[in-house]
Design a protein around this nucleic acid. Structure first.
Lengths: 183, 183
DNA sequence: GTCGACATGTAAATTGTTACATGATTTA
DNA sequence: TAAATCATGTAACAATTTACATGTCGAC
């Protein structure tokens, strides 16, 4: 196969963004430049090839809007399905180690598409995977910190604290979601 | 220029690692596979080209150790200088937004090379840059959270909490360093 | 009428991933 | 002696960054 078949994280960010409403390439760039999605690149050399990729995968299509007469990128029904599948993909241990960013991006896009029960189960699994992972990190720290120079040890402790912050965020988000569910 | 002149983050991770003692390519891979530096790739297709790059930049060289008779990668004096320059590079605002990982890697390698006074000033600047950045994030949150779906808002709050954890880590690390300095 | 924002792209270079290839050495 | 580990690489491909190219449109 000469072409990739799997969207990148950036592709999903675009997909989740235009799910709400069709946007032009330029508008997508501006969103990535100015909003909370700003950790993704907004440069033309990133966005336009990504849009091509998504078109090739038939997850989006370019269509002239009847109201405005301007060409915008729309999500296809296949794109919607794919996005939904990505949002609902079961969590794995390896996601915790390497892809927390992806989990957060997935969660960010869940609200209008996924039931609040499923959002809660996502967070519950997230938390349940984080807990033993943090324990293992602390274990590793206990075993190896004596061999490390002070700054190395401290830097490692930053890693632990980051994961702990994510865990606390999970708990907090769970509280909010369960509260709103019962109200 | 056909070849890059600037080392990548991975290059610096290798440089900081072999500063202590020369290692073979394979040993470097194992360290990246099994230790706290494990967030960097350990695959041969990453490490060996990186070593080539570092050799081309004359920051490392391959030398047969007289004791063992085995070839290991050593840091050159130019490499030491370059590493030191990287560690001491002044912090910028853009580092906070996009390159916290790099700052942490830099700090991790400081202990044996950089005076504790300079480590403290690194952390102080880090903290002083984090503080207004977090304030700006909270401001942005206050202004825009009403327009976001619940999960989007929560995901953004994770970002804030992450930075806050980094800030708390700064304070904690500063306390430890200043305590040890006076003892 | 010119400056800045709107708008869409391409090209080159770089980096990293995955998979493959190859051979030596150690261990069960 | 067979399997695992040590050890070093290359090739194909994918993705991103930076820089360039080009043209429209509205405001001042």
């Amino acid at each position: 196969m000469s072409h990739s078949t799997k969207p990148t994280l950036l592709d999903y960010a675009i997909l989740g963004l235009i799910r709400e409403e069709p946007l032009s390439g330029y508008e997508i760039r501006k969103v990535f430049e100015t909003t909370a999605l700003g950790n993704y690149s907004s440069s033309p050399g990133t966005i336009y090839p990504a849009l091509k990729r998504l078109q090739r995968l038939q997850l989006v299509e370019k269509r002239v809007q009847q109201e405005t007469g301007k060409a915008k990128v729309e999500i296809t029904s296949e794109g919607r399905e794919h996005l939904r599948g990505w949002l609902l993909r079961p969590l794995e241990e390896s996601d915790i180690e390497k892809r927390v960013d992806e989990l957060l991006l997935r969660f960010a896009f869940m609200a209008p598409l996924i039931s609040s029960a499923k959002q809660i189960s996502f967070l519950t699994t997230f938390r349940d995977l984080l807990y033993p992972y943090i324990t293992a990190l602390k274990d590793y720290h206990r075993r190896t910190s004596e061999q490390l120079p002070a700054s190395g040890r401290l830097a490692f402790e930053h890693g632990i604290m980051s994961y702990q912050a994510t865990l606390e965020w999970c708990e907090k988000a769970l509280q909010e979601l369960t509260k709103n569910k019962s109200s």
